[in-house]
Computed example of a mutant assay.
Amino acid sequence: MPIYPDKKNGVLTGRWRVEIQKDGKRRRGRFDSHAEAVTAEEVWKREPIPDVAPERRETRRRTQVHSLTEACALYAKETWPSGTRRREAITQIGHIAEILGDPSVVGIKRLNVSEVREELLRRGYALSTVNGHLSAFKSLLRVVKEDHPAVNVPTMGIQKPKNARIRVVSDEELEALFRFHLERGTSEFNKVILAYLMTGARLMELLDAKPEAISRHWLTVHGKRDKTRNIPTSPETHNLLRDIIPIPFSRSQVRRLWDAGRQHLGLDDDPQFVVHALRHSCATRLIKAQVNLAVVKDFMGHESIETTLRYVHVDDPMLLEAARIHGSSVAASGGLIGGVFTSLTTRKLAVLT
């Protein structure tokens, strides 16, 4: 068989070997994931096998120009250190290569990006999913460019949904979800739901977390673009994380269990009711608890305060309460300012009565 698990001294290494024979020649190689091995096999089947033994991988990748799929196979681990994100990105690059006809990485242009976006949207992908594909595309090209300066990294034009609704999970919905999983016999998933709500973590941040990432007051996770960040934890959250990490569900299992609850709640037609809504709920609860915006920004791992401001929803009662607090502050300041303000307030009340 052309693809098989790699072994060393009879022990599985966790890598995959690819071996093909063509025209009486043989080519072999090792790869870090099955997806990379499959991509390499497809590329090798199309290419003639060199007459000389292939050069070492590091030398080869720096000296020859690659197709998009081959570049992905060679640079994936460097581009996406997280195994889970890497597998997802390899799939996304595969979609892009299919759309563009697996071009040389040197020939990528802005027009190709537009072609990819339009085709993905035509296929019915959500804008966020299209953005994920383009983000993977850009990340790969940037890493390849370090070895091949001729590679162009065009502007991806990643778009954000206009006036996107921030979907939070209400207390009533949480209660219904908990009750559903209790009755269904999947009550362990309720702990996972609670963990996402308490930490505000992104989906893969918790799924990739290891027990050693939990300290007394912090949970260390790998966030967007594999940046490390620390999430503060209360004693209750700390105990919860100790109980469930590593998360006993895969990514697909988490989504299936969540979707089962969504269907039970009759929310099949609400595409925003996803696990990520628990992150929105965490940020919204912090804002409503009047936690300082700068603190909320760091808690959630936002790069910009503008992102945090999306969770601030101002209504009339909040404005009136702000006026009351400000008035009390001025009145309590003493001196002429406080005296004048207090006399004005007293006079106004007398007129009203």
Rank of each mutant, 00 (worst) to 15 (best):
P2H: 01
K8P: 03
L12R: 04
L12A: 09
L12S: 05
I20V: 01
Q21A: 08
K22L: 09
G24D: 03
G24T: 09
K25T: 05
R26K: 12
R28Y: 11
R28W: 10
R30W: 02
D32G: 04
S33N: 04
H34K: 13
H34E: 14
A37Y: 06
T39S: 03
A40Y: 10
E41G: 07
K45V: 08
I49N: 02
I49T: 00
R62E: 14
Q64T: 10
Q64V: 11
V65S: 15
A76F: 10
T79L: 01
W80N: 09
P81M: 12
S82D: 11
A89S: 15
I90L: 15
E98L: 00
I99V: 13
L100P: 05
G101Y: 01
S104F: 04
K109R: 15
N112H: 15
S114T: 11
E115A: 13
R117T: 09
R117C: 14
E119A: 01
L121I: 05
A126S: 13
T129A: 07
L134E: 04
S135D: 02
V143N: 13
H148L: 00
N152S: 14
M156K: 09
I158N: 07
K160N: 14
A164N: 06
R165V: 15
R167P: 12
V168N: 12
E173G: 06
E173C: 10
L177G: 05
R179Q: 13
R179M: 05
F180L: 09
H181N: 08
S187V: 12
F189E: 01
N190T: 03
L194W: 01
M198T: 01
T199C: 06
M204T: 10
D208W: 03
K210Y: 12
P211N: 12
P211D: 10
E212K: 11
E212C: 10
I214G: 09
I214P: 07
K224G: 09
R225W: 12
R225M: 12
D226E: 14
D226N: 15
E236T: 03
T237H: 06
T237V: 14
H238R: 14
L240E: 08
L241K: 07
S250H: 11
S252G: 10
D259F: 08
D259L: 04
Q263Y: 01
H264N: 14
D270T: 04
F273D: 02
V275K: 00
A277M: 03
L278G: 02
H280I: 05
T284D: 13
K288S: 12
V291P: 01
A294M: 13
V295A: 15
K297H: 08
F299E: 03
E303V: 06
E303K: 08
I305Q: 08
I305P: 05
E306P: 02
V312D: 06
L319I: 14
E321F: 02
G327N: 13
S329E: 15
V330N: 00
V330K: 02
A332Y: 05
I337F: 04
G338N: 02
G338P: 07
T342G: 07
S343V: 05
L344Q: 01
L352Y: 12
T353S: 03
